[in-house]
Amino acid sequence: MITAFVVFTVAAIGTYLIRLSGVFLLGGDRELPPRVRTALSLVAPAAMGAIIANSLLLDEGDWRAFGPWHLAALVAVGVALWKRSMGWTLSAGAVAFAALLLAGA
């Protein structure tokens, strides 16, 4: 338990330094070059795409068997493109997933 406390604390300090890194290293008054600005604007889509692929299509490093996860995600993506709304996407994905689980898909 002491070990867990120490591990969480050290990981927290390290993670805070990671969170500060870009804000302070790139955050001066100077204007960033256009290429850098373009790359930075792609951070969110690239990182979130990576997390989606890893948590949806893989399961602990192996392919996830095709089923409710994939189908509900397709519903969510469809609604996201149609409604362009975070709330609609979450609701539709959650309802579709619950329905698929209940249906035993």
Partner: peptide, 18 residues
Amino acid sequence: WQIGFIVPLMFIAVLVPA
């Protein structure tokens, strides 16, 4: 309930509409 699905779902909801 396989609530792990909440992880990809949250990120789809943030990413895809934008």
